[in-house]
Amino acid sequence: MDLDTFFVSCERLLDSRLIGKPVLIGGTSDRGVVASCSYEARKFGVHSAMPMRLAKSLCPEAVVLRGNSGGVYSNFSKDVTDVIKESVPLYEKSSIDEFYIDLTGMDKFFGCHKLASELRQRIMKETGLPISFGLSINKTVSKIATGEAKPNNEINILSGTEKPFLAPLSVRKIPMVGEVTYKSLCDLGVKRIQTVQDMPMDLMHKVLGKNGLSIWKKANGIDHSPVVQYQERKSISTERTFNKDTTDISKLKGIIVAMTENLAYQLRRGNKLTACVTFKIRYSDFQTYTQQQRIPYSAMDHNIIPVVLDLYRNCIIADYWCV
């Protein structure tokens, strides 16, 4: 199950004037990126992860929102999670707006499609959020089917019909096929999933290695990965994107300290501790450096801030030696 344009749907519940309008959510500066966009905006070619400047040029009449940072989206997500938790024996929350549900054996009592459809209707009624689902025998086919069901709909892929369902779709629809892999497949003349289905598994392995085997299996509707029971999230993070380049070390240090203090406060407020700290810095050319360090369990500023600053200095040094 996948909540449709989740961030946009949340904003529309908060402000009904946004309904029917093209909406962009993300960094509002030219350096920002689109975190979510409405279907009205997608008609203009806008998509998630697109630079905000490009999105605004494609859809100049769009309403641009920075998005809520006060836990609003998490609260809406929790409302949906609570409904699912009450209704099914096993579910996996793979992201803030996406769920896998294992209905194995439920067909003997209720009928899997009937149960899933009723659950979808209940979620929409109790939360006001549109949601879609694809029902099948495994996670891969269900995820692809959910994408095909959108917006705000459902698809039931009967057992034994997975390959015919997948065959006409673009290989880009296969989970784990990103831009680089897609280009490699296109260079081979492979654009539709049916072409992968018709290829020998050994050839896919030879061309794309281990990744090729996984793609071949998914293209053939084969996926034995289990639904993993949802557990509370294991990490929290924050980031800051600057409107203009800066080399002001004092300014950067102050901002990093403030960000760390905020995260430490969130840990203490949630009665949590951390044993691992990760720092990432990205430059205007999108070169990215990451440092990580394990620490004794703590949620205290005076323990975490020195570690973060050390990681920051290590990233700067790494960049210096890479120049």
Rank of each mutant, 00 (worst) to 15 (best):
C315A: 06
G67Q: 05
L90K: 03
W216Y: 07
K253P: 10
L54Y: 11
Y283S: 13
F109A: 07
N153A: 14
E126W: 12
A275N: 15
N211P: 11
D97E: 03
S9N: 02
N314D: 09
K206T: 14
Q197M: 04
C112F: 03
T28A: 03
P175Y: 10
L13D: 00
A264I: 07
E154D: 15
Q292A: 14
G128W: 14
I249G: 06
L90E: 07
N303H: 14
L14V: 04
S225A: 06
E126S: 11
S16Q: 10
A258P: 11
S117E: 12
P151K: 03
L103T: 00
G26K: 00
D301L: 08
H224R: 10
V88W: 02
L14F: 07
C276D: 15
N220V: 09
L103K: 01
S184K: 13
R17G: 04
D82L: 06
E154G: 13
P175K: 11
L252V: 13
F76W: 04
E261D: 13
K108P: 07
I316T: 10
N152L: 09
K217R: 14
E11F: 06
R12D: 03
S36K: 02
F99E: 02
H113D: 13
P51R: 00
L13K: 01
L3G: 00
H47S: 10
S159R: 13
V141R: 08
D245Q: 14
T5M: 07
W321V: 08
W321Y: 13
K253E: 15
S225Q: 06
Y100R: 01
L115Y: 11
C10F: 05
K191W: 09
T274P: 03
C276Q: 15
R12N: 02
I131H: 01
V141P: 03
E61Q: 12
I281W: 02
L24E: 03
I316R: 02
V33G: 00
E92I: 01
T161S: 10
V46L: 09
G221E: 08
M204V: 05
G105M: 04
Y289G: 07
G32K: 01
V63I: 14
D248V: 15
Q287Y: 11
F165D: 13
V72W: 00
D82E: 15
K21I: 11
N156P: 11
V196P: 01
I317L: 01
T127D: 05
V257Y: 08
K191Q: 11
V88L: 03
R122F: 08
P296S: 09
Y283H: 13
G178R: 13
R268I: 05
L208H: 10
Q121T: 07
N138S: 12
E154K: 10
G105Y: 03
L166A: 06
K163Q: 14
I123F: 02
K139M: 10
Q266M: 13
P164M: 04
R31V: 01
D102E: 03
